[in-house]
Design a protein around this nucleic acid. Structure first.
Lengths: 337, 337
DNA sequence: TTGAAAGCGTTACCAA
DNA sequence: TTGGTAACGCTTTCAA
């Protein structure tokens, strides 16, 4: 562990002051002789010098660090978001810190605090939904915050999300036009804005429509209740289709179906939020709603950096944005007429 | 953006010196009166003070930061590793920085440099495989490095990985005992130690065995070559089984099969490295090798922290460790006799 | 075009 | 049991 080379070493061997080195590092070449610039350049290279971001952060209060807290990483959706964040941070010259809150508000807050201790310049939060007050306060009095995917009700926090409601409505129209007589909406307990929006789309999608059969909404909170719900829904008029509010639920659904010798299409059609790598390789292929998760990450990052770097207080009505999703139709929502 | 409270503020309002506050923060209570301790405790709480980790890092050279560079995040394997890293960092009091190198050595190096600029105390690298020299030098002269999953040939770097060879051999024995006459090993170009180990297991697994039919190894580098390889393998004696070196390859295989009306079991059996959420819900269920990816993350983290915190130079033969994988047998490797 | 010196928020040594 | 002060590596006036 040899001690690292500092600005002092560079100054000494280059024969100039530390100030001048600092100017060089910050690319303030305008008032610097060609000669010294070259000299410094050389010394920096030969000594393999890299400025300490820690010292920089301390002095200038600019760390070029962004912290992201992700609720759950066990799905492709999150992975792609992280990729988007990572790429964009890279592109904009920031370094990304990531923490996984595992869907608990306490972790979320702890992790945010650690980030703040390290003087991140902004925060991207895929919130559990239970830290509303803390987040609001944070963004008000100390640091820019952008919410990712999930918003918190009645807050001024900027949120980058998908057009859950719009695409949900579109999916409903498609299902109804396809002639399904019973639509069952399967969703986890509605604890965040994303789920709420999707449920709203389902309900509104039924207004003024002629689904002859019935509709059904369940929020299974364990494996057994999922089985029960499916069996109950199986008594509804055919053709039936299940509208799943997310990929994990769809996975659970498929597992139950397999265990109970139920078949996609024959017993239930299936449409689910969240595109996944396997949806198209299984038989039948699963109809999905593909959220632009990668772009969600990209946009959240851009948005945050904008906020960080904006000079004036143009922070006016940055109410957030919603990115378009895509309905990918596969075999699971077709049935034999 | 109000300015944050510093140790100075605490000292002033508590009526003691900054030194004493620092002692309190570092839990050096032994030489501190009960009274001052309480007093400080109260002030810290009411002023909602949090010490700046940046200042700490600068002064003490201890940042409590760990940097992790992941090659590719588009698979469940990486997600679980990250979860393991995140949880363990949390548990051990470290903060995790993550970057995605996207399988390019240049990104990998840039990202590591950024981490070093921020004075991380250790590095966890899931390497692309092309930064061997840089990594070796890094760990020799400045900072502990633990390799994750993939090692680099002929280096002294510690690597935490799975027992790829052993479990691969086990899988081979299982396939041969099951009576398969042709085994086709599908692997991406062998650019890292993990793939190399798996291939070695395949080859060694055939020694002294009586696979009557033939064996076949391919490293498809694009979709078309994958199709061609499968079609060629289809001419081999039945029953045939494909041994896939990773989950992504299996996904590609499945896609090709679907497009060409080929059926798992009927046309080829299938066994793949990498367990995934969907392997058990599809029909037929896919036989997989389940690596303890979460534990890989956990162990890498523990190992690194050990290295960081070890007082003496007990760095002797920390050659790394390999964690056990599990063979999960499902329908895809059964065939009708 | 360049440099001296103060200071960012801590810690650690030495003294009291 | 407590405090003064230098130092960590850099940036930023202000002056030359």
């Amino acid at each position: 562990m040899e001690k690292s080379v500092t600005i002092k070493d560079i100054a000494k061997t280059a024969g100039v002051s530390e100030t001048t080195i600092s100017r060089y590092l910050n690319k303030k070449y305008e008032f610097m002789s060609e000669k010294t610039r070259r000299k410094i350049e050389e010394v920096v290279r030969t000594l393999d010098y890299r400025p300490s971001n820690v010292a920089r952060s301390l002095k200038s209060q600019k760390s070029k660090l962004i912290g992201a807290v992700i609720a759950d990483i066990g799905n492709q959706f999150s992975s792609e978001i992280i990729k988007g964040l990572s790429d964009t941070c890279e592109e904009l010259g920031y370094t990304l810190m990531i923490a996984i809150s595992d869907e608990t508000a306490e972790n979320e807050q702890n992790q945010i605090e650690k980030f703040v201790d390290n003087q991140v310049e902004g925060l991207i939060i895929n919130t559990t939904g239970d830290n509303q007050d803390y987040l609001t306060q944070l963004s008000k009095e100390s640091i820019p915050v952008v919410l990712l995917d999930r918003g918190v009700p009645e807050s001024q926090l900027e949120v980058i999300t998908n057009d859950n409601y719009t695409v949900g409505l579109r999916a409903m129209n498609y299902l109804i036009a396809s002639g399904f007589q019973s639509i069952g909406f399967f969703v986890n307990p509605v604890t965040n804005t994303v789920r709420a929006e999707r449920l709203r789309a389902f309900k509104d999608g039924l207004i003024n429509q002629t689904v002859k059969g019935a509709v059904y909404v369940v929020a299974p909170d364990n494996q057994q209740s999922l089985v029960d719900s499916m069996m109950a829904f199986k008594e509804f008029p055919e053709p039936r289709v299940i509208f799943s509010a997310n990929g994990l639920t769809a996975l659970g659904l498929l597992e139950v179906m397999k265990e109970n010798q139920l078949e996609v299409i024959k017993d239930f059609g299936l449409l689910t939020f969240d595109e996944s790598a396997w949806a198209k390789v299984v038989s039948p292929g699963i109809t999905t709603i593909d959220q632009s998760s990668y772009h969600l990450g990209v946009e959240a990052c851009r948005s945050l950096v904008n906020e960080i770097e904006e000079t004036t207080e143009e922070a006016l009505l940055r109410s957030g944005r919603s990115l378009p999703s895509k309905l990918i139709i596969r075999e699971s929502t077709s049935y034999l007429h």
